[in-house]
Design a protein around this nucleic acid. Structure first.
Lengths: 335, 335
DNA sequence: CGGAATGATTGAATCGTTTCACGTGGGGGT
DNA sequence: ACCCCCACGTGAAACGATTCAATCATTCCG
């Protein structure tokens, strides 16, 4: 028998289990001498609290789950970083889940998180198909905060960055630089952020009478960007600028273009999205649309705890941040 | 009352809780008709299993924890990625914990994980101070696999890459390129990987009669690299090459050097470590020491499940991979 | 037609905490 | 001397699922 329980501790200390529990949870309510004896017993037996039993009694766990599209994307790790301190100081634990942009994985994870009765959930859903399940979580008293997702659409709190506006900023920047035909790279199109960024871009390009080709990448990562460039370069008339749905795609695009001897920014400009740290450190430092990453995480966690604290009387809040353009070498040439 | 239990399901289906449990866990043992009724009740009530209760009974949870030094470091996310499929297919769940190179945080997380009775633990410990606690976990039947850590030192399974050899490879490469004085950047020195990589580097530099200055960075990230370069550039005689303890530090070093107008690789060469994807995409593509990142994760998970399966009769295995040099532009000049 | 074998379901014990209504004994106030 | 209150402790009842021996029907076979 390697694991000892409260009962064992109680026995060795010559007290009741209730007292052991008190030593652990309300030390001020137990006499010095007794406390000493109990602590000694705990040390001697190497007793460790059983969280399952605790949770069973409490009805909830202490973990706050964050479900992201891609843990390997620095954007998301920065969001997680932003949320962590708050959760920590509230005595919680952060659990990171990677849905990998895969609806089925996401489903499975949500199921498990629900079974675990997590304290709350921050999530960037893959697409709209999880809406139902998320509402169900809320109905089961598990607050959900949507991260980086269009506001107001769902009965949850949310933090988001105005992606349509971000798309506009990118396109406006390229138009100002004199480009007449733009390529948009991103996908899959089921991801709302991708659609929104594209929408903003389209808005500006149409208004300015500039051509817009879209290339759907399989995934929002480096490989996706590289592959999309292959397609693009097969066009009879290759666009002189690409706007990528995120920086990983942009880095992939940069690699693809360089590999084919296309000079960036002279022959083709690039604008990315997120402004992850690596964007500035790229072969050609990337112009990008900056999002307040850590702030997103921090605010999301804050909203979550607010909702928990307010309980039933809570009204959802939807916080929207504005993105900003960071111009670097990858768009440094006038056409 | 928003959450229903087995008892509720049993009542609505007109059966006993034992039967409900059977429907869920051994469906073949219950009659079709009954099963239908129970499933209907489950659907109607929106019943969700309570994992805490399950675990309490089972004595273990289903989660495999991975404790890493820095989630924002692509090296670690790749390791996690490698481990995930295996854990998944074994019906487990991955929990990622970020110790942030902070011993106290690590301690706290280990405590929590022990309380949670996790299935097992993959960990890159911050330093040796957790050895005791880790042994205690093993004693409590929680298998521990050390990731990216010197083999044989501890009573656990481990997967590692030969860091001393990696350091040698880097130094050898720089010596071959004709450098006469090398700077090592990395830290804190309490991290064993840092010490080993430095040791390998020192070995070769001494053997070759080449100068070696070491700069201790506060942390193994971009900022750490940038700051170390500030120090280095104050030297009367600035080294012509730097070997960085990982790629993030190397990227920081690259930024620092560029900011001060030092040309890479003409005036100063750089070798990184890990060969993360971003290394190849950097402003000056980085030479680096490649580690089999995903393989590390995969093997670690495999060892863990082996240990669980073998039980008491298990003997620890220590798998060591060999790193390899990937030469790119950042060392492309002969001195 | 009796008895055994098979199949389906039940009920109660159990996991390890937390919580709360109750003792119990001693000390202070009047 | 009496009463009351306080400070400490106790014991037992939850929490929700799993498991297993026991029960109850059937069916099958000789």
């Amino acid at each position: 028998m390697t694991t000892s329980s409260m009962k064992d501790v109680a026995r060795t200390a010559g007290v009741s289990v209730g007292t052991v529990s008190n030593v652990l949870n309300r030390p001020e309510a137990v006499a010095e001498e007794t406390k000493r004896r109990v602590l000694a017993a705990i040390a001697k037996l190497g007793y460790v609290r059983n969280d399952s039993a605790r949770q069973l009694r409490a009805g909830r766990s202490r973990s706050v789950a964050i479900v992201v599209l891609d843990v390997a994307n620095p954007f998301f790790t920065d969001v997680v970083r932003g949320a962590e301190p708050l959760v920590d100081s509230a005595g919680g634990v952060v659990t990171v889940c990677d849905s990998g942009e895969d609806v089925r994985r996401e489903q499975r994870q949500l199921e498990i998180l629900e079974e675990q009765r997590v304290l709350g959930l921050l999530i960037t859903p893959v697409d709209d198909s999880s809406a139902e399940r998320l509402e169900r979580l809320t109905a089961h008293d598990i607050p959900v905060v949507l991260v980086d997702r269009g506001a107001g659409l769902h009965p949850h709190c949310s933090v988001a960055v105005d992606d349509v506006h971000g798309g506009r900023l990118a396109a406006r920047h390229l138009v100002d630089r004199g480009h007449h035909s733009i390529a948009f790279i991103g996908g899959p199109m089921s991801i709302p952020q991708v659609r929104d960024r594209l929408a903003g871009c389209r808005e500006v390009s149409e208004e300015a009478g500039v051509g817009l080709e879209t290339f759907t990448s399989v995934s929002l990562n480096v490989a996706g960007g590289r592959e999309a460039i292959e397609q693009m370069l097969r066009l009879p008339q290759v666009p002189t600028a690409v706007f990528c749905a995120n920086d990983l795609v942009a880095l992939g695009a940069l690699q693809g273009l360089t590999m084919h001897g296309v000079k960036v920014p002279e022959e083709c400009a690039i604008v990315g999205y997120d402004d992850i740290d690596f964007a500035a450190a790229a072969a050609v430092p990337l112009s990008s649309i900056r999002q307040p990453r850590a702030q997103l995480g921090r605010t999301a966690a804050q909203l979550l705890f607010d909702e928990i604290a307010e309980g039933k009387g809570h009204t959802h809040r939807n916080v929207v941040f504005q993105p900003e353009l960071v111009a670097r070498a990858s768009t440094a040439v006038e056409m």
